[in-house]
Write a protein that binds this DNA or RNA. Structure first.
Lengths: 363, 363
DNA sequence: AAGCGTTACTGTACCGGTACAGAGCACCAC
DNA sequence: GTGGTGCTCTGTACCGGTACAGTAACGCTT
């Protein structure tokens, strides 16, 4: 009957004060009823909550609370690449999933920060959050700059470590080294590398270490070269862009159809490796009899392939959990005024030998 | 030398007022310098910004701004399932990617709302946001309830439409009908269905429409039955849980190894279809000569398979774009005080015939 | 009866911005 | 000289909470 319940548009906003007036207590008591139940008697608390319910009050306004408390209940995640790309990469989505689930346990939501737009909007500068994970970003990108200027609790993941900031990485150099050593041990001497690059097309490059690449890309290259140069082997290197997916196929063909076909191929990821296996089959080559292929990541795909891929396993879920644990530790330290952790952790990896690698063909 | 520049811990917080005092203008002018550049002279503005920079001021505090302005620059996305699961589903990740990219253009960030936790934390209730997309959630789940109570601008996606709320859906019923009709037209008379279920294991069910399922699952079932019952065909139905991935393999074997092996199988998704093809090959059956398989979604996987899948294509990216456009329209309407759109849109789908379906075997 | 620790509630002072309605002033036309 | 218009800049009143230091009442010891 009353307008207040029907004409929502004109209904004045219900705040703590509205409820306080109705119950006849102070605003502070109503706040306590919601946020600090031990501060008032159960009887009064139920009365307050009932009145709040009556008035259609949902709970303390999150923005107001964020301002007063200085915390928002959400942490950000910066992925400088277009999010569209990040989501099509199974390594990234697995990581995101693990992060989101770990945050859920801590009662935090995850805000994906889109890179600074053209119209002057900069989520990294303008969105409220308690802390932020920076995943595979250029350490000097403008978005990272903003986050640092804001002095937000920050944890870098799969990134070039920066002193004074906590980082969670994977021992990619060691993993790549093990992968390369595996092929060397199997007698391979002509070994090519198919890895990530930022050019438009797949192409051989002469100075792989001089190429712009992300942290993981550099570390893996270093690892492969560690083992190969120690064995006196100079690999040919093809760089393929991540997108479109066909670029890796093209890179694989480059490697397999030229004059000096290798007997072993080291790949930046299982997806690249799948392209090599695919291309090899299309050319009538047998894997691993004619050519051995080693991937990276131990993507679910790796076991679905025929033959299943030899690869380097990284525990992406552990990476996500650790990233969240580190960030919450920084959050807590800042709150308590204790020194914030700034460790640089490198998670172990493991070579998983499956059917796609075998002894080098005799001849 | 001065403590202020080195001992960050004790450094008093820099606010608009700090800058105002230093420049000798009002706090409002400093605010304008950042947020409404046309409200002051260029000369003064540069002086203000320089002073701000000197003091290490990054920009208006997002929480304070959110409270004062009543908007946060972020929209939420609710996925009631564990986010970990949502991220392993390529349909969901493609959608998320499209949403995130569309939001980026609008300068908005995307906050993933984890479902209400056990320790009393409820992101759907406690996180500040301007609006929210609700994707594949039970319409009566507690999290959705909170969002509704907050009267947040809300758009449902792939959900049972609710009057008074805008929805973006896909014409799954029509798509499934077309898929089923395709098999009927090819002469198939024994047709089984492998679809999503929530039980622990894969199993035949007698009353598929009576089973609990999500909106898409129900619509697709209705569509298949539309065409099949019109043709006088009663399909057998197997329900398989989404996780673990092997459950679909089990469901596929159930269908292919029994006494009344069908000549055609309709599947909830391309992933399920891939399991059927896989199982068929393992049993020495040829696709499509012995058995036709039709998927759903037109996952990238569909063309990678041998034979490539006949499937129903839905344009997930368009769905993401439309969801964002709808939400921003609701946001704008609320801001302008104009009536909020409450349309229920159903995006078209398209049957894509490829190699996995063919004429029913003669016998 | 004085002293003291609890429990239950309250008052005040913020948190750091923005909206909006002026105010002062220069410039211009008439 | 007067009134109107535009450009800058300012003052005030919020936005909706929370932290913290009270205060009052009550029971319990000594």
């Amino acid at each position: 009957m009353s307008n207040a319940t029907t004409l929502d548009q004109t209904m004045a906003r219900v705040t703590l004060q509205t409820i306080a007036d109705k119950v006849g207590v102070s605003r502070m008591t109503v706040s306590n009823a919601f946020s600090r139940p031990d501060q008032l008697s159960d009887e009064l608390r139920t009365r307050v909550l009932a009145a709040a319910d009556d008035l259609g009050y949902v709970g303390p306004d999150p923005s107001a609370r964020a301002l007063a408390r200085g915390s928002t209940g959400a942490v950000g995640m910066l992925l400088t690449d277009s999010l569209g790309e990040a989501f099509t990469d199974s390594v990234a989505t697995t990581f995101l999933a693990s992060v989101a689930d770990s945050l859920a346990e801590a009662g935090l939501a995850l805000t994906l920060l889109t890179p600074a737009g053209t119209q002057g909007n900069v989520p990294a500068r303008d969105v409220a959050m308690d802390g932020v994970l920076v995943y595979v970003c250029e350490p000097d990108s403008p978005d990272v700059e903003w986050l640092r200027k804001r002095r937000l609790p920050l944890v870098g993941v799969d990134q070039t470590p920066v002193l004074g900031t906590a980082h969670v990485n994977v021992d990619d150099r060691q993993g790549a080294r093990a992968a390369a050593q595996h092929l060397v041990d199997l007698g391979h001497r002509r070994i090519d590398i198919l890895t990530l690059g930022y050019a438009d097309h797949s192409a051989f490059v002469d100075e792989p270490l001089a190429e712009r690449n992300n942290f993981a890309g550099r570390q893996r290259m270093l690892g492969w070269l560690d083992a190969l140069t120690a064995a006196g082997i100079t690999p040919r290197v093809v760089l393929s862009p991540f997108r479109p997916a066909e670029a890796a196929d093209e890179g694989a063909r480059l490697i397999l159809t030229g004059p000096d076909r290798p007997t072993g191929v080291l790949c930046f990821s299982d997806v690249y490796a799948a392209s090599v296996v695919h291309a090899a089959h299309a050319l009538g080559l047998r894997v691993p009899d004619d050519i051995s292929v080693v991937g990276y990541d131990d993507n679910p795909l790796a076991t679905r392939l025929d033959p299943p891929l030899t690869t380097v396993r990284q525990d992406i879920e552990a990476k996500g959990r650790l990233a969240v644990a580190t960030l919450t530790a920084v959050l807590k330290a800042r709150q308590d005024g204790t020194p914030e952790p700034t460790d640089h952790v490198s998670l172990p990896v493991e070579l998983v030998v499956r059917g796609s690698s075998g002894p080098a063909p005799q001849r």
